[in-house]
Design a protein around this nucleic acid. Structure first.
Lengths: 237, 237
DNA sequence: TTGTTGATTTCGCAA
DNA sequence: TTGCGAAGTCAACAA
């Protein structure tokens, strides 16, 4: 095998596993290492085959040339469409954690339901604070809060309803989104008044300023601490 | 498939390609994407097999559970030992190029040695400018210079010694690193005074500002042009 | 479209 | 063994 692209690489003659995916990409695996192949060609690419010689040409002109001395096995299957992979331990995991540990938001807080539906989209968690006020929570892992703390920010207003937004990587839009939720939720006489909480593992100063200017409480979540607390531990670390 | 480790992941039932390498590692590939499998278990790991159910346990206790509904094909081969891969065209290649083309840094510059040792680490290249001043070069491919040019930056000071740093992906730390080298090198009365040059394929404005503030010359390397010059051109770009 | 950041990163080198 | 930086990184996501 010879590869000529951003770098040059050469593989001597040996028994290897060649994989051709549906998109034409080619992988050359050895019998060890990790999931990374010895060499490969990423899609999009074209492959020409002639007399034991494959030439795979990538989009940018890089070439992967494979000389095939002997074929030990050659199988082909249509895998069909990929249903996709679902990962937890990320957003949804933090959502679970916070749902199971409402107390980190305040004494007496309790969950109403997850993925609370609204006209402009679901809020991750809906709950009530100690005074019985409704609380909406949207979960993401890291946010734009920076330097805030549970003990900081606008205190939970007794009896007031609180919407909690936990953003992952968002910018100021997390505050904007929470603001939209609050506007909508406050139109419901059964919920209003609804306060807001922006919760994240970290919040940028800009977002915090904007949030607090709108009376939205800023909350920092300690993911490691929360992960150590709950009863269920599907994840090991 | 279910994975429980640093995160949790689930794959629904579908036709997939399972690969077991000689070291026991397991790969689950779909028919697209890149060379990265949908899921995997890195070595070292152990695998137990029972009634269409594989359980792969990693070193740290993470588990990969695979339920096998139907086997379309099952082949096994001993690939033997891997002769290994040889790569060119990365850092060392650019180091070679610059070592062979000192003239791109200035007329009359010449190489002293590659991997020049210092107490805080090796400088990739040590050379002398036209006036006989010592020059230290550390090679990486892309850097944090952005918008600089050979004709820009602090001009090579006649007779002064110049340390040249060529960073690949570094941030401002490239400037810091070069600064440390310069401090150390300037303690050597046989070398001092030693100037600095930060060379890269691109440099971020921040780094350039910091560098030039410290009297470090900023240099952009034209990799394509440099590669086109020498006799060998195994790589395409 | 472009840039930035995280990854079950992997991989290499050096201390 | 450990730690750090590079990768033909890949991939998700914000600007």
């Amino acid at each position: 095998m010879d590869y000529a692209g951003r770098l040059s690489a050469h593989l001597p003659l040996a028994t290897r596993l060649l994989m051709i995916k549906a998109d034409g990409s080619v992988l050359i695996h050895s019998d060890g290492g990790s999931y990374k192949p010895l060499n490969w060609m990423s899609p999009p690419c074209r492959r020409t085959e002639e007399a034991g010689r494959w030439v795979v040409t990538g989009k940018s002109g890089e070439t992967l040339t494979i000389e095939i001395e002997e074929v030990l096995s050659d199988t082909s299957f249509d895998l069909g469409v990929d249903p996709g992979l679902t990962k937890d331990g990320v957003e949804s995991h933090l959502q679970e954690l916070l749902a199971a540990q409402m107390h980190v938001l305040g004494e007496g807080w309790r969950l109403i339901r997850r993925e609370y539906p609204t006209a402009i989209g679901p809020v991750d968690l809906m709950c009530r604070d100690a005074a019985g006020g409704a609380v909406a929570i949207e979960i993401k892992r890291r946010g734009e809060i920076d330097g805030a703390n549970f003990t900081e920010g606008t205190a939970s207003r007794g009896g007031g309803h609180v919407a909690v937004e936990v953003k992952r990587v968002a910018g100021i839009d997390a505050v904007e989104q929470l603001t939209r939720y609050l506007e909508l939720l406050n139109r419901d006489p059964l919920l209003a008044p609804v306060g807001g909480v922006l919760a994240a593992q970290s919040i940028r100063p800009q977002a915090r300023t904007l949030a607090e200017d709108r009376g939205i409480r800023c909350v920092i979540l300690d993911y490691d601490a929360m992960r150590g607390m709950p009863s269920s531990d599907m994840t090991l670390f």
